[in-house]
Design a protein around this nucleic acid. Sequence first.
DNA 1: GCCACTAGTGTCAGGAATGATACCATGCCC
DNA 2: GGGCATGGTATCATTCCTGACACTAGTGGC
Lengths: 120, 120
Amino acid sequence: MPRIRHTTLACSPGCTVEATLELFGGKWKALILYHLFEDGVLRFGELRRRLPNVTQRMLTNQLRELEADGLVSRTVFPEVPPHVEYALTDLGKTLKPVIQALKTWGDRYAHSLQRNKAGD
Amino acid sequence: MPRIRHTTLACSPGCTVEATLELFGGKWKALILYHLFEDGVLRFGELRRRLPNVTQRMLTNQLRELEADGLVSRTVFPEVPPHVEYALTDLGKTLKPVIQALKTWGDRYAHSLQRNKAGD
DNA sequence: GCCACTAGTGTCAGGAATGATACCATGCCC
DNA sequence: GGGCATGGTATCATTCCTGACACTAGTGGC
């Protein structure tokens, strides 16, 4: 996914599908959004704990992109040690049905998938 | 997204979100699925015409992966010149609400996106 | 002084994803 | 025989994504 950068929005019909997908096509973005939907506001460290397989650098990266796309807000509290909170923006919250659809499908049909199961 | 290969399904809650995403995280898979939803059955060449920016190799590739995941069926007619038809499987059809959710969101909020608009 | 804590950043390297290009088979038409 | 059409493959190069690792700042605690 991501990995994916589209050039224009004026391509084929259904291109908005692609455009939407790019927003959370990043390897961990959907998961980040999911946790933010669950928990509301999360600090950087809390996110790290919820996503143990994600490198610090990757997490920062994905969060920055989500922020740049206006889906996630980043609030810095000028304290020591640092304190940063991440939350969904209003725009980000509108993605809830989309993420929900992904999760619903996954919960229901994940077992139907053949390929990745055994070897992977 | 692609490009993304997850290792286990038994990670965090919400992992099914990721798992689902991997199915059409490939650069063009969502678009392929979208066109199959629209048109039902499509020949290889018809898909190519609908996705002009996709290389032949990429299209083949993505179709093979969709087939491997059981979302798309491939029917070869032993004729000359070759004739191959692609269609959604029953499992593939269950993805409709998901793709629909992506499209609905995209149609409604695409204009709200800042980043990719101008320069990109 | 030394270490720890939080939220990062910088650099490097490996590998996967993607694109460009050329090539193949076969039957038909001229 | 030459060219066209369809649905691919093979090979190569490149770009991009991702991960590992080390490093930073400022304050508090020992």
